[in-house]
Design a binder for these strands. Structure first.
Length: 654
RNA sequence: GCGCCCGUAGCUCAGCAGGAUAGAGCAGCGGUUUCCUAAACCGCAGGUCGCCCGUUCGAGUCGGGCCGGGCGCACCA
């Protein structure tokens, strides 16, 4: 909504600059005055023009202000400070526009070209932990914003089913737990297999540490898995497949779904790397070293990477590194590898959406076209920045400049544990430590399902307290359970989104369980209240659509000019800026911007509706009731969209 | 050594195309419920934006240098 105003007024400013000063402005950006009394939008173009025109900013501002005052939708424009132009919008038509926009949000213009987002990509060898949740929630929400803003997005979850981590658990089953394939199969069919593997994986760490010679088992196992067609590979396959199902179930609790599971095994079996190697060799993007420390290796030159400029892609024993495989995968994503996976249906979600999986065996018909993206976002922790740069460099070295340009690493920092939370989990933490690193090897970390369980339990307890205090009918257990799950989901998603992605999150259980203040439940609460007001109106014989229609026909201008109007106006301005917030989130690749914006909108509504003098049901006049209903209805409708984009469900009651 | 990230209120963090008096949550203190549900609202208090230099009409924001903390620079993934 506001972006439309920006471009319209921007045109007016450009025209004015042309007419008055024969100056050509490239882009006109608008800011917002620090206080509402100063105006609705602020223009800083006079400062820029002052430089090129060698005239006083104020002088330029005067001229632009005069022109802008005549622009449609503008009530007045005045010069402030050293050369700002503050624009006051005509409130009534703008407010009607905002209402129409939120009541019937036109989908954003379709942006051509496919976008692939890879996220989650957890090693399929143990339960997901809170760090993985950060990845998945970040990725899922980014996808949602992309789609909201008109992008065609495919979501891929990379399954490293032939890596060392899976190999370690296989070693665990064989040599630590001493289980046969059938015994593992039985375990895998039971509950909490991912938890079992979590503990087993930690034991394998100790097993290796006790006798370094045992590391040989890891190498042998990994080799057998890569080779395929043997008992070890079958066991690895079983473990990985079952753990992936656990991860999918965990993520589904948070509303996170995928379009494709891309398996590393299939990248190997279908010889993606061999093809990528041919391409890289032919383009002389990689070269074989004949002397020096990298003798016998194929390396990719990394410019400006410091002392160690070359990255080894193929080891001297002829095997390819992970980074090499990743280059092949990235090339496939971008449609620059003339190979493709075969596909099978993995599962069908409740809403009918099909999750596909890659396969190197027999494929099924009907798969959509995966992997011809214009833009690729890889959601991977910041520790992978260097290999991600290598992947990008590899794509670029093949001459695919645009593809390299379109390769984004959505890097995020890790999640560490607060001393209190680590202690609660039974770890000794010294006084000086301010944070404790999670460690899969040591089995130290907060499991995703445990965290969700704790949230649901806490939310349920809160609900029970409130329900028991109620007069009249109380909710049944299953309704309370559903609300508890929805509130937990909102709390967790917001909690992991509100930090910038370059910030290390020190995870504290107490803090994560908070339902007051800047949290998901705060946002949910506002919408629930607003919906409740609408419901009460209907109960008392009013019809919300009629009231809204009536309000639209009233003199909005007079009302919006008053004291109540100021509060309503700032709420409407904030709602109008949601499209801008979403675009900013995409441009800055920072999902937190939209999450924070949603909180700000909720906050503005809370502060308004809470005041008894602005009561809708007990409004002094029918006119005021109609006007306030329009506000409440606009808020609900808008927040339904915003929260859906953020993946925050709205419970029926808190 | 080189590269990246972080340093803003007691604590956790916003402030990411430089812009007006630096914001929010938590914690603290004081208020608000015969009023659409208090997971709420209102108020008070709390800041040399790590330090120095520079660019600019203007720097928390950009550049350089320093200090402190974290991560990366594997023939691991």
């Amino acid at each position: 909504m506001i972006l439309h105003v920006h471009s319209q007024l921007g045109e007016a400013v450009r025209a004015a600059a042309r007419a008055a000063f024969a100056a050509e402005l490239a882009t006109v950006s608008f800011q917002y005055p620090p206080r509402a009394e100063l105006g609705d939008l602020a223009l800083t173009a006079p400062f820029d023009l002052a430089k090129t025109l060698r005239r006083k900013p104020r002088e330029i501002a005067e001229r632009l202000a005069a022109e802008l005052s005549r622009a449609p939708g503008v009530r007045k424009a005045e010069v402030a400070g050293g050369g700002y132009v503050n624009v006051f919008l005509d409130r009534a038509p703008f407010a009607r526009g905002v209402y129409d926009w939120v009541a019937d949000p036109a989908p954003a213009a379709r942006v051509p070209g496919q976008v692939i987002v890879e996220h989650t990509s957890i090693n399929p060898n143990k339960a997901a932990h809170v760090g993985h949740l950060r990845n998945a929630i970040l990725g899922d929400t980014f996808v949602s914003i992309l789609r909201h803003r008109g992008r065609d997005v495919g979501v891929q979850n990379y399954i490293d089913d032939t890596g060392v981590q899976v190999a370690d658990v296989v070693v665990g089953f064989r040599h630590v737990a001493g289980k046969s394939y059938d015994e593992v199969a039985e375990l895998a069919g039971g509950a909490r297999f991912d938890y079992y593997c979590w503990d087993l994986y930690a034991q394998v760490g100790e097993f290796y540490a006790a006798d370094p010679a045992r590391k040989k088992l890891q190498a042998e196992t990994l080799h057998a898995i890569e080779e395929g067609g043997n008992e070890t590979a079958r066991l690895a396959e079983l473990v990985a497949a079952r753990i992936v199902e656990c991860h999918l179930a965990t993520m589904e609790r948070l509303g996170i779904r995928y379009d494709l599971l891309a398996h590393e095994r299939d990248i190997l079996r279908l010889h993606f790397w061999d093809r990528a190697f041919e391409l890289l060799e032919k383009a002389q993007a990689i070269r074989r070293e004949t002397e020096g420390k990298n003798a016998g290796c194929w390396v990719l030159t990394m410019e400006s990477e410091g002392a160690d400029e070359d990255k080894i892609i193929v080891r001297s024993n002829g095997t390819v590194t992970y980074t090499g495989k990743d280059i092949a995968y990235q090339l496939w994503k971008m449609g620059h590898l003339d190979r493709d996976f075969r596909y099978r249906r993995q599962k069908r979600y409740d809403d009918g959406h099909v999750l596909w999986t890659t396969t190197s065996g027999e494929g099924e018909d009907g798969a959509p076209r995966f992997g011809h993206a214009r833009e690729v976002y890889n959601v991977i922790d910041v520790g992978q920045s260097y290999p991600q740069r290598v992947v990008k460099a590899g794509v670029a070295a093949l001459g695919h400049e645009e593809a390299a340009e379109g390769s984004h690493h959505l890097a995020y920092e890790k999640v560490v544990l607060s001393p209190a939370t680590a202690r609660a989990m039974g770890y000794a933490v010294s006084e000086e430590e301010t944070a404790v690193k999670v460690s899969g090897r040591k089995g130290l970390g907060v499991k995703a399902d445990d965290l969700v369980d704790a949230l649901v339990t806490k939310a349920r307890a809160e609900i029970d307290v409130r329900e028991d205090a109620r007069e009249g009918e109380r909710r049944a257990a299953d309704e309370r359970g559903r609300a508890a799950r929805e509130i937990s989901m909102g709390a967790l998603r917001y909690f992991l989104l509100k930090f910038g992605r370059t910030k290390i999150i020190t995870f504290d259980m107490e803090e994560a369980l908070a339902f007051t203040g800047e949290t998901g439940p705060y946002i949910q609460n506002g919408v629930v209240r607003a919906r409740n007001i609408r419901a009460k109106l209907e109960d008392e014989g009013h019809r919300v659509p009629d009231l809204v229609a009536r309000a639209r026909a009233l003199d909005l201008g007079a009302w919006l000019a008053g004291e109540e109007g100021d509060e309503v106006w700032s709420l409407f301005m904030l709602m109008a800026r949601s499209d801008e917030a979403a675009e900013q989130a995409l441009r800055a690749e920072e999902v937190a911007l939209l999450a924070k914006h949603a909180f700000a909108v909720a906050q503005a509504f809370h502060s308004y509706y809470q005041k008894p003098r602005y009561s809708v049901l007990h409004a002094e006049t029918e006119e005021l009731r109609a006007l306030r209903t329009l506000v409440v209805d606009a808020f609900v409708r808008h927040m339904e969209v915003l929260t859906r984009v953020l993946g925050i469900p709205i419970p029926e009651r808190m």
